[in-house]
């Protein structure tokens, strides 16, 4: 009873650690200055896929849509145990909202084919929208289970999953294939394996191979690609044309939502009353609050 999984992962700006340098003077964000990290919940999703593989066998394929540097998270997927990693990258994808992103991911998944599970993190920390998972499932015409906490049982053509809901949980049974988005606490992602780091640290995408050939007339990209492929070190790179996508549904053109305006956050001047950090200061404050019936 082999079960194949595809895991959707994303490289995200580390929004928790945004420093002053990241903001440009005009209030826009300098993305290049942002540290990029593996969206944590997507690592949990990969852990789910690897657990299914450990139990039932099958193949785990990690995919990401992003700029060339997103290959970093794909290598990390390989370090954790993914069998294959695919980068979907094209300038034409720029400015994609969740609808355009889910179109590209769904088409990629159709291109890969032969899957039982699609796993993804519940949401990515840069937008917190939680929309790409369900939108991908809709485009594939398959069911979805969001906020998954645990896989309880896997059958020949069904799966039982515990889903977190407000104030409790649900146990759902779905037919396969199904798209599952997982919450942060659902599993603890396994660490990178030293042996796999050694094996895959040189895994490269097409654009990275192209860089190697730059200024070296003896190296040809096609040859290199063949060589890396036989060594299992080629990170497959798919473009809009490779996937025969409809350009009007990609990137900014395929995105119904547009950013109309951004304003940098200007803090209103503070008019607060300064309370000395002393017993007397705090005592006076409490007296005020008691008098105003805010305390007591």
């Amino acid at each position: 009873m082999i079960k194949n999984s595809i895991v959707m992962v994303k490289q995200v700006p580390d929004t928790a650690n945004i420093s002053g340098q990241v903001m440009k003077e005009d209030g826009t964000v300098n993305r290049a200055k942002l540290p990029a990290i593996f969206n944590y919940e997507d690592r949990v999703a990969l852990e789910f896929a690897l657990q299914v593989k450990d139990k039932f066998g099958g193949k785990v394929t990690a995919i990401t849509m992003g700029p060339p540097r997103a290959s970093d998270v794909l290598r990390e997927c390989l370090y954790m145990g993914a069998d294959e990693a695919i980068l979907i990258s094209d300038r034409k994808f720029a400015g994609a909202d969740t609808l355009a992103t889910s179109y590209v991911l769904a088409e990629t998944i159709k291109h890969i084919g032969n899957y039982d599970f699609i796993f993804a993190g519940r949401q990515a920390i840069d937008g917190d929208t939680a929309q790409v998972g369900p939108q991908t499932a809709e485009k594939l015409h398959i069911p979805q289970i969001t906020y998954a906490d645990e896989i309880l049982a896997v059958g020949e053509s069904s799966v039982k999953i515990k889903k977190k809901i407000e104030g409790g949980y649900e146990i759902l049974e779905s037919s396969l294939p199904v798209l599952v988005t997982v919450i942060k606490d659902a599993a603890f992602p396994r660490p990178f394996q030293a042996k796999r780091i050694m094996a895959y640290k040189n895994a490269k995408t097409l654009s990275e191979l192209e860089k190697l050939t730059e200024g070296n007339s003896l190296l040809y990209v096609d040859q290199l690609q063949d060589e890396y492929e036989t060594r299992g070190l080629y990170i497959k790179t798919l473009t809009m044309d490779d996937l025969k996508l409809d350009e009007s549904r990609c990137g900014i053109h395929g995105s119904p939502t547009k950013v109309y305006k951004v304003e940098s956050v200007v803090l209103a001047g503070s008019h607060h009353q300064i309370v000395p950090p002393t017993k007397e200061g705090i005592g006076d404050l409490i007296d005020n609050l008691l008098a105003d019936h805010i305390l007591g």
Partner: peptide, 21 residues
């Protein structure tokens, strides 16, 4: 949990714009 499961699915099918939170 329900709204965030439902809205994206409907927005995808009807090709509507959807903004979260």
């Amino acid at each position: 949990v329900i709204g965030r499961d439902l809205a994206p699915r409907v927005a995808s099918h009807t090709k509507s714009g959807l903004t979260a939170d």
